[in-house]
Design a protein around this nucleic acid. Sequence first.
DNA 1: TCTGGGGTCCTAGGACCC
DNA 2: TCTGGGGTCCTAGGACCC
Length: 409
Amino acid sequence: MRTFFHVDMDAFFVSVEELFDPTLKGKPVVVGGRPDERGVVSAASYAARKFGVHSAMPLRTAYQMCPQAIFVDGHPDRYREYSHKVHEVLQAFSPLVEMASIDEAYLDITGTERLYGPPLKAAHLLHERMKAATNLNCSIGIAASRLVAKISSDQAKPNGVLWIIPGQEAAFLAPLDVRKVPGVGKVTEKNLHAVGIRKVGDLARLDEAFLEQRFGKWGLALAGKSRGLDAGGWFDSEIGADEGPKSISHEHTFNEDTADLDRIESTLARLSEMVGRRLREHKLQARTLQLKLRYSDFSTITRAHSVPRPTDLDTEIFEEIRELFRRNWKAGATVRLLGVHAAGWAEGGEQMDLLGEARHEKWKQTLAAADRMRDKFGESAVSLASSLRGKFRERTHENPASLPGKKPT
DNA sequence: TCTGGGGTCCTAGGACCC
DNA sequence: TCTGGGGTCCTAGGACCC
């Protein structure tokens, strides 16, 4: 029998913003951007939630529901910084920590009774330490499985601690909506409602064979979840196994849809650069490059190509992406979103021919210099977008100031 | 309601190979 | 020739999470 904590920071982005601007405290606050921008709510304060505002809601809708809310831009650097602080507090408490996202973590605290006392006491101690070290509130769920710990931290919100005593899992879960089960989203919820399943208890009562026949492999996993088991999928893996990213991507939604090829290709160049930089940061080389293209009507396609030689170079990424774009764009159709995605890491440095090697080296040095500039002067200090375009496009005349992401110098 | 950005995992068909 | 079966890779799409 093991004991897990699920630690979840309360209204994390909003709370961090409040640390930087205490006048926000207690007010309806929406993090995500201005209300006239395209975008969705990243986080809403509890005061804003009272008006029905919640994360993933379009900013424009949030504004209609709560026009008096204060809309602030997100600050990813701040959240990363505080996420590190949270991680440090947790790491000092128990070595078996796994950050599940920027604002939540699992701890395996099995066998810490002598150090911290019973689980509930240990959780309260951790809760106090978190507040003292970060000035942030969190909620902690305690259970014998990670799944139940996660669901119980959600029930404990805000700023609470909840322990599901071993043996009580089914009784705790039964009255909850199926939607509370991690992995059950809008679609699965609808499918379950269609066969009369609304509560986790309804699920638990059903025959496993019926669920498997109706929902496949996923149905079998659901049967286990309804009984509070980690069995199957992500919840099964060991805590603390950090494996690094499996894919790296960047995308951009235009504030107004565009069919301007110049704008489109310079955006693809910028996204390619961003992906290339992250690949080099992680010392990864990608074999598969993927373009994402969303039109004005929100219809979305992805087109991938696997290259014979894995790459981490902006130029090579852009070449592939631009080719994919040219082959697949319904010419003239207005574009809402563009994305560049890299995956399929090289096993171990594959050989290239001498000519490729020399060309590769040259770009490597150029890009390393650009990376250093960005480290020193900020992300927007350097953009190779114009040089990429000069190299690969017929037209070379550009107004550099018009390139997205590039500050006029 | 008019829908971000960065991820993970799963499914499914076709190519290709043995 | 009238047609197996398994494994793996590639590609496209979609559900879901924070």
